[in-house]
């Protein structure tokens, strides 16, 4: 049985806008339309798309917070909007910017409360606490009230809270946003390990393509409420052709640089933008440019989601 089954799910909102002194006209916004996908147990899926594409609407429907206007969906065999409280035992949710922990409580007290609310067997609770405390570096934070934690610390605390009751599925909304490089890589390692060892199914929304590349075997891209891509990372690269961009400042303006394997996409005075495949190393390219020109400065731009989505559109017509 699939862990998540979504069949032809739609969600529209009726917005009422003032259109005159007294009149209000209703118009319908389709946040999600005709969404279908399944997720198998143990999969780690990146769910990406620009702001307002329907990501959080989808997550809210999968957790039972929102009722879909059409279609059917089940998570762990349960219908979320009907069996929301039972489902709560089987899922974990991290809401990104908003903590699910109690603001005034030290982390430790929050966890003890969760243990009781979720009726986690004491032995299981101790094992999980020991594991998470070590892997997420929580030992020094346990006695600090949540409101005093930094964003990164709080995120770690929230992730432990979401996993404490051994859920089958966890939804992570932007788990690495605002974290420094070291924290990001630690967090990713933790998620990889938990996924591997517990067979945890993970749905991850993110703006950071690195999260996807390092964690997810599968990517779903949503835009304007429709799934525009569903496949593995290699396929995303093939279709979306994620490219990085080398920005070089030359000592003086020159003609566009021509180097095999890179495309000069923009020239502005002495500054030039060279796009190259995301998986290729930047080193030979830099060397090639340096061999022919005098470089004053350089930087590398990572591909962003919007870029990938634009390329998906230009390479294939959206399905449906």
């Amino acid at each position: 049985m699939s862990m998540i089954e979504v069949r032809d799910v739609s969600r529209s909102f009726v917005l009422r806008r003032r259109s005159g002194r007294w009149r209000r006209t209703a118009h319908t916004v389709h946040a999600v339309s005709g969404l279908s996908f399944t997720v198998e147990p143990g999969e780690m899926v990146g769910y990406i798309g620009p702001n307002g594409a329907g990501k959080s609407t989808t997550i809210k429907m999968l957790t039972g917070i929102l009722v879909p206007t059409g279609g059917t969906l089940t998570v762990a065999g349960l219908t979320p909007y009907v069996e929301r409280t039972q489902l709560a035992q089987r899922i974990g949710v991290v809401f990104g910017q908003r903590t699910a922990l109690w603001w005034d409580l030290p982390l430790r007290d929050s966890y003890e409360l969760l243990q009781r609310i979720y009726r986690i067997p004491p032995a299981r609770y101790r094992t999980n606490m020991a594991t998470f405390t070590e892997l997420l570096d929580l030992a020094e934070l346990l006695d600090t009230p949540v409101r005093q934690l930094s964003l990164g610390q709080r995120m770690r605390g929230d992730i432990a809270a979401a996993l404490l009751h051994d859920p089958d599925v966890v939804y992570l909304d932007e788990p690495t946003i605002g974290l420094d490089v070291v924290s990001k890589s630690k967090l990713r390692e933790f998620l990889r390990q938990t996924n591997r060892e517990r067979g945890l199914t993970v749905i991850l929304t993110t703006h950071d393509l690195h999260d996807i590349e390092q964690l997810c075997s599968r990517v779903m891209v949503i835009d304007h409420g429709r799934l525009v891509f569903d496949g593995d990372l290699a396929a995303l690269h093939a279709v979306g052709g994620a490219r990085r961009t080398l920005v070089v400042d030359l000592s003086e303006p020159t003609d566009p640089i021509t180097i095999p394997g890179a495309e000069t996409v923009k020239v502005e005075g002495p500054r030039q933008w060279l796009a190259f495949p995301a998986e290729a190393s930047a080193a030979p390219l830099v060397a090639a440019v340096a061999a022919a020109h005098d470089i004053a400065d350089l930087s590398i731009l990572e591909p962003d989601i919007e870029d990938v989505i634009t390329r998906i559109y230009t390479s294939t017509p959206p399905p449906g």
Binding site: K60, T63, G64, I65, R84, T85, Q86, A88, Q89, I91, V93, F95, R98, T99, A100, I117, Y118
Partner: peptide, 14 residues
Amino acid sequence: RLGTLDAMMVRPVS
């Protein structure tokens, strides 16, 4: 308004 009701809705308690 703050959106913190959602956190309550994903807990196994009314």
